[in-house]
């Protein structure tokens, strides 16, 4: 009998402490500041003309929806373009421009342009170690009409001293991919 009483007492005390625990554990909306949702590569013809804007937007971040990838127009055979790449986080309001941060930490980032037959990409900026970042570049379109894919890849903590890396060859870059977008491009 005595045992039963003690057991009952234990049960009562358990119920008491569980029922008095507070209910203020609602989740707080997380401010996703680090996510890259948008990549914008704007290529302006040297000597003027309408820029070509390559845009990739993924407004649900790592959610199930795939990025929406667009190109505003085609490139002209043999033309030379001054290019810039910007990175945005449009999950925050107002949208956050991550480009400045990448520039500031230029020695920990590099952008690679992977393609074949579309022409040549040359870096037009430098980090503190005189190695390219790729936020600014010069694109020389192919001399003959071509269509293909252009991959723009942002690598975090690449081995920038790796062989060929400063020439834009990704093979020895290692690091982790922060962004990777494939654009369908036409040179005509």
């Amino acid at each position: 009998m005595k045992n039963l009483r003690i057991l009952a007492l234990a049960l009562v005390s358990i119920t008491t402490f569980s029922s008095c625990s507070s209910d203020d554990d609602k989740a707080t909306l997380v401010n996703e500041e680090e996510v890259i949702t948008t990549i914008n590569a704007t290529l302006t013809p040297q000597g003027g003309g309408t820029p070509v804007v390559l845009l990739s937007r993924d407004l649900d971040g790592d959610g199930p929806n795939a990025p929406i990838v667009t190109a505003s127009g085609n490139f002209t055979v043999g033309a030379i373009y001054n290019g810039t790449v910007t990175f945005l986080n449009e999950l925050t309001n107002p949208a956050e421009d991550i480009t400045a941060e990448i520039k500031e930490e230029g020695d920990e980032h590099q952008i690679f342009f992977q393609q074949t037959g579309l022409g040549t990409f040359a870096y037009n900026d430098k980090d503190v170690n005189n190695r390219p970042i790729g936020l600014n570049f010069v694109y020389t379109a192919a001399a003959t009409p071509a269509t293909g894919t252009l991959n723009i890849v942002l690598i975090h903590e690449p081995n920038k001293a790796g062989e060929g890396v400063s020439q834009g060859i990704i093979t020895n870059a290692a690091g982790a991919t922060d962004a990777q977008v494939t654009f369908n491009v036409t040179v005509q």
Binding site: I36, T37, T38, I39, S56, D58, G61, D62, G63, P64, A66, P67, T177, D178, A179, Q180, V181
Partner: peptide
Amino acid sequence: IEYTIRGAF
């Protein structure tokens, strides 16, 4: 496979 701006996963 899902595609995000980081690439495929």
